[in-house]
Every structure is written in structure tokens, then in C-alpha cells.
Design a protein around this nucleic acid. Structure first.
Lengths: 175, 175
DNA sequence: TTATAATAAGTGAGTAATCACTTATTTATG
DNA sequence: CATAAATAAGTGATTACTCACTTATTATAA
């Protein structure tokens, strides 16, 4: 990975997150990365290849983020850690950009990557089971769905109070 | 409103919902509406004017949809009716297209129209207050956030089981 | 009523700018 | 010197939008 390759990836990540994939031109990416437009095609083949590279990089990032939840054994801690992931994310501008891109891509291209959350969903099911919740699968699914809603609001709604919502949630689940 | 104007609006609504606003060209809209491209600009000024017209039309639709919740006085019924709105919507292909467009626009242009849900949020706060929930404001906000998540999954996740999630929710809120 | 004038609706070809992508050429590196 | 990295200058297709013009509808006047 050369220096210019990284510059291209960073420029593309920020631009795709800001303006979306389709409405970001390769010439804009080249300008922000301060490279020639042709270099993008030399390194990534085409525009989609550039997007694929960014998503792959992000998936590795996501795995690291979720690893802590999946390896946890105490059920209450599993739930608490999962809920607090969004707080951790919200403090890292790079992570925010990445998740913003993930959601933008979802809506722009209408692809929902379920496989990404499968492992963490299973961890939540186990946790809710151990805590004797009546319907652990539904409980886990609802919490994941709620996280989608919270991400949506955190990214799009300027005055959304993330931290107090998280506190309220932890209170609700008694974790 | 002439017949061709309506054809343009319908074509644009479906195309914007399918492929997004920015990546739908005016020539595509004209083709689907079976009119000349120039007519779009005669009636709506520019591409953004077309989008504005569609959104305005939809907001009136949304008001009608929420009216039933807002005028309800029994607190449990307020919550139940609110939760079931998404079911009602999911049965009308036209409504699905409209909400899909709403979310796509949100993410594409990064505008979150809070004013649209203000009235219904207040109705929920009142309901939760009457039901002696400890934190009615947070409770209402969380439910609205959850609905964003459910809409996201219903639209994007092909195998999302909406009805059983709704049943589970009603059970949780005892409504 | 009927001819005429005025307005609105609609068309299709054309605009410069931009799109993703390619090719030819130059620069750097081992 | 040879290979890879990078650039610059292109390609045809597509973009939102405009323009000159025709056709249909409505209003006015003899």
C-alpha cells in the first residue's frame, strides 16, 4: 500500500460519507487526494473497486469493535458493552465517517449486510437466554433494530442526545 | 394539475424511491412518464422543484396517517395505534414507496425533518405520562427511534419479520 | 355564434459541463 | 536499463437544463 493509495482511500472514504457513492465523481476523489485521476483506476480498477476496498477495510475495523462483545461471558456485560459500542464510535471521527458511509451505502444501493451482525446477535441471544428473558431471539433482534434507529438519529439528527439515550437504555436493561 | 403533470410526479416518486434522487436523471423520469424532458422543467422549474413537489405531497399523506394517533385520548390506544402505523404502511405499496423515498432522501441529502414527528412525539409523551412511566420524554423518544430502526430493517432487510416484531413490541408495552 | 387573440401545455433538438474510464507519456526507483 | 508509479490528455456517453417552436385550450370581441 503506497502513500498515494492511502491518500486515495482516505479521500474516497470521506467523500463517499459526505456526498454518497454515486454522486461522488472520481475526479473529485483525485483532487482531494491530490493525485491524478488515472491513478485511481490503476490501483483500484474502477470506481466500484475503490468502494469495495473501503468497505473491506471497514469490516475489519468492525470486527475489532465487536470482538469485545462476542468474547465476553457475563451476560449483563455483553448487553452493556454492546449498548456502549455506539458511544465508543461517536468519539472517533474516523469511525463516525465509516459508519456514516455504511448507512449511506445501505440506502443508496439497498444492500443490508446481515452477516456482519450475525455473531453479535448470537452473543446477545445467549445473554438474554441466561438472563431468563422470555423471548431471547426477539429481544436480541429488537436491540439490534434499535441500534439502527439510534445510528440513524445520531448521524442525521443534529440535536440528538446520544449519551442520555444510552444511559436510559442501560437503565431499562439494568446493566 | 394536468394528466401529464401527474404522470411526471408518479414516475419521479417511483424512480427516486428506487434509485435515489441524485442518480435518477431527468431524462429517465421523462421516459417513464412518457413525456418530453422539457415538460418537467416547464412545470417544476428544475429537478429540485420536482423533488419538493413530491415531498410536499407526501407530507400531507403523513399528516393523515398520524392524525389518528394524535386525536386518540386513551393512552394505551395512543401507543398501540402508533406501533401499528408501520403495519398499515407496509400493506400499501404506494405508502412503502413514499417512506422509502423519505429515508433515501434523508440519507442522501442528510436532512432530518423533525417537525414532522413533533406532534406525534408529544402525544406519546402524554400517553406515557398518564401510564406513570418514570421518564415519559425518554420513553417516547426511544419508541420513535425504534421506529426508525424498524423502518430501516423493513425496507432494506429482505427477510425482516415485521409482524412478529410488532407483536413482540405490543406485548412489551402491554397494549 | 364565430373569428381572433392570448395563454398554457407540450415537444425535440441542442447546450456546456461532467461522468467513468483509457491511452500515451513522463517520472521515479531498485 | 528496466519496471513500476504517476501524470496529462484524451475518449464517448450522460448530465441538468434551455431554446425555438407547435399544438391545444381559453378568453375576448364583432
Amino acid at each position: 500500500m503506497t502513500e498515494k493509495q492511502e491518500k486515495i482511500l482516505n479521500a474516497a472514504l470521506s467523500l463517499f460519507a459526505e456526498e454518497g457513492y454515486r454522486s461522488t465523481s472520481t475526479s473529485k476523489v483525485a483532487k482531494r487526494a491530490e493525485v491524478s485521476e488515472g491513478l485511481i483506476f490503476r490501483h483500484f480498477g474502477n470506481k466500484e473497486g475503490l468502494l469495495t476496498s473501503i468497505i473491506q477495510l471497514g469490516e475489519e475495523q468492525a470486527k475489532v469493535l465487536f470482538a469485545d462483545v462476542i468474547t465476553e461471558t457475563d451476560p449483563k456485560e455483553v448487553i452493556r458493552k454492546f449498548i456502549e459500542i455506539i458511544i465508543k464510535t461517536s468519539q472517533d471521527p474516523n469511525a463516525i465517517a465509516f459508519w456514516k458511509l455504511q448507512f449511506k451505502i445501505k440506502w443508496e444501493l439497498e444492500i443490508y449486510g446481515e452477516h456482519k451482525t450475525e455473531a453479535v446477535e448470537q452473543a446477545l441471544v445467549t445473554a438474554f437466554t441466561e438472563l431468563r428473558y422470555l423471548n431471547p431471539e426477539k429481544e436480541a433482534n429488537l436491540l439490534l433494530t434499535l441500534m439502527d434507529g439510534m445510528a440513524t438519529r445520531f448521524i442525521l439528527q443534529k440535536n440528538f442526545d446520544l449519551e442520555s439515550t444510552i444511559e436510559f437504555l442501560k437503565q431499562k436493561y439494568k446493566v
